[in-house]
Design a protein around this nucleic acid. Structure first.
Lengths: 139, 139
DNA sequence: AAAATCGTAACGAACTCTGTTACGAAAGGA
DNA sequence: TCCTTTCGTAACAGAGTTCGTTACGATTTT
């Protein structure tokens, strides 16, 4: 999993949009809740828009809104949208092909790691934005 | 998941040890298969030793060996040993507590992400070193 | 025309990661 | 005992990543 905070921030951003249904929310407003710069929010929202999860409107009175009901957006969709999955990361130097281990380690490990990553996404797919928002407001 | 290559390299290292059962393998030998510096290998092996997965012997004729049979070491144990799991990463700035979303986003998300991470580890726990080595040698 | 807002490029500071050198500690052999 | 081998670990540099920030054009409403 990525060591950055794009995923957690993106869920935060989406939760703010879900908390203002039917309205256009500005990046400034979202940035105030996330406590960061509006450009950081816009970058995440640009990725979410490319994935079809949010819609944007420019100009005065514009902003962002969810492209679907919160009950139909799950955390896996957000994770995929903001963390383009590049597969497992191996070191910069290729393993030694003269060693029986180094020769084939990449595809063998990629398969096992791929299954593990799929299991992680399957679990994220079970959680939807409306449940997240419900738990947030219950606190 | 971490964007580094400690996990994949650590599995490679363990596979080399599994391929030389009953012998003490030096960090130089392992580094030659991984194609990296011996110190990088020793750093990983130090973490694996702290987790009880490998044993080391200093001095002339020394080296590393698996502390258990390859069939009893799974990929989850290796992942936990070399990637001290620090939980989900949020941004450097704390969310705005005046916003109902920012107020409680951390624990709510940490729970969901924790379940997803547990699912990933459960899948890695099903894969053992002897299966990895078997697939490697079959190629 | 003016104001508001998104979209995106460019840049810097801080951080992370890998590789490298260096050196002490431990263990064995001559 | 002395020398060689090997681990254990600290220190550091270069590359890369990430986040925040400024800037500015494009678009939309008033």
């Amino acid at each position: 999993m990525p060591r950055n905070c794009r995923f957690t921030t993106a869920v935060h951003v989406c939760a703010v949009l879900a908390n203002n249904p039917g309205e256009d929310v500005t990046s400034d407003y979202v940035a105030d809740s996330v406590n960061t710069n509006p450009v950081v929010v816009r970058r995440l929202l640009a990725a979410l828009a490319r994935a079809g999860l949010v819609a944007s409107r420019r100009g005065s009175g514009g902003g962002y809104r969810l492209a679907h009901p919160a009950a139909r957006i799950d955390l896996a969709a957000i994770a995929i949208a903001v963390d383009d999955d590049e597969g497992p990361s191996f070191g910069p130097n290729p393993p030694n092909p003269a060693c029986p281990v180094g020769r084939a380690i990449k595809p063998v490990l990629a398969e096992a790691i791929g299954r593990a990553e799929a299991a992680r996404l399957a679990e994220l797919r079970r959680v939807h934005l409306d449940e997240i928002l419900e738990k947030l407001l219950a606190v």
